[in-house]
Computed example of a mutant assay.
Amino acid sequence: MTSKTLRRLIEEKPFVTCPGVFDLVSAKFADRTTADALYMTGYGVVASYLGLPDAGLATYSQMLDRVQIIAQTVHKPLIADGDTGYGGLLNVHHTVRGYEKAGAAAIQLEDQQNPKKCGHTPNRHVISVKEMVNKLAVANDARSSKDFLIIARTDARTQLGLDEAIRRGEAYAKAGADIIFIESPESEAEMRKIGMALDVPLVSNQLHGGRTPILSQDKLREIGYRMAIYPTAGLLATAYVLSNIYSALAEDKPVQEPLYDFNEFSSLIGFQEVWAFEKKYASLEAD
């Protein structure tokens, strides 16, 4: 899927919905829905790939590997979490080029200090506005196409207050960001204030279990948002089901959770193509 498709969705659709994906199975399921785009969640990828918290522990190379393999698997545009750009200005340049080449339609860059943390956890600190503006200037120059979108996220709300977060959103838009992401507003009133203050495409992080209210898409659109990401819904649902099923198996109890059909799952991950290949080349294997 070309990145041009995501820009067109933002420009033409009243609202763009992006479920969070964290591995290849979740990406395949989300790709089959009517969602507009997919969001590769750093929180979920670090948890599923490394078994670690999203606290600046994953490297650029590890995340790029996930971007590439997910982007090559799905048909919908993929928005990829790029954390802080994994270092200074040269790192940001390298990261933007790498994510774009890997097939992402957009990269999310944030203004946290290193090591960064999940945006709905405590003890986050932000860099100066000037530092982030410089990063965005480099990111803007690094991309080979303007259709590869830059999402600028600020985590200033928790540490410095909503007004400072809005001020940063304005500065980041002027620095070349295509979409502004103000992390973790704590009420609908705060979200409405953001929507009224910023005349640029806004994304809401609808993180289940986080600080921000979960609102309907109609409500989000009404108060000024053009896009929503849902990073944790699929991950937490999967964790809940796995916890119950594995406990039941360990205790020799019947599995109570509904199970996805085995044959349908085999089809989802490509066994039909394997069988078709084996049938086509059966005579060669016989030789």
Rank of each mutant, 00 (worst) to 15 (best):
F265C: 09
A156L: 13
G82D: 06
A239L: 15
L9T: 01
S243T: 14
D178F: 05
Q68P: 00
I69M: 10
G209L: 05
G98N: 07
I127Q: 04
G87Y: 01
M63K: 02
D111Y: 03
A286N: 12
L57W: 05
P185F: 11
D199W: 02
E131Y: 02
Y39Q: 12
I180F: 06
I245F: 02
P122A: 01
T232L: 15
A105N: 08
L149I: 04
I229H: 06
Q62V: 08
K13C: 05
A276W: 11
P231A: 02
V203S: 04
K135F: 03
D31L: 07
V138A: 01
N134W: 10
H125W: 07
Q68N: 13
H93K: 14
V241T: 13
V255W: 06
I179F: 13
E170W: 12
E264A: 07
M1E: 02
C118G: 07
S187W: 01
V46C: 12
M196L: 11
G82T: 05
V74Y: 10
H120G: 04
I107P: 00
P185C: 12
Q206P: 00
F265P: 10
R192H: 12
T95F: 12
L50C: 01
I150E: 07
Q72L: 13
S128V: 14
L6E: 02
I70S: 04
A233S: 08
P53F: 00
D83G: 02
R157K: 14
G161P: 13
P201T: 03
L284H: 04
Y281N: 05
G82R: 08
T154R: 09
E222K: 11
R226T: 06
E257R: 15
L109S: 11
T41D: 04
I151S: 05
S283I: 12
K193I: 06
T232C: 11
D178N: 14
A71C: 08
D178M: 10
G161C: 09
K174N: 10
G56V: 03
V133C: 14
Q217A: 14
T73C: 15
L220A: 06
L202H: 05
T95C: 15
Q62Y: 02
G44T: 08
I229W: 03
Y260P: 14
L242C: 09
Y260H: 15
I194C: 02
Q112T: 00
V16Q: 03
F22V: 00
R157P: 05
S26G: 03
Y172D: 11
H120V: 03
T34S: 15
A55L: 13
Q113T: 07
I107N: 03
K279S: 10
M196N: 09
D178T: 11
L50K: 05
F29I: 15
A35E: 14
S216N: 12
Q113V: 04
A189W: 11
A233G: 00
L64M: 08
L259G: 00
P19E: 03
Y60A: 09
I10T: 00
L89Q: 06
Y86S: 11
V25E: 11
T232M: 15
A171W: 07
A228G: 07
S247L: 12
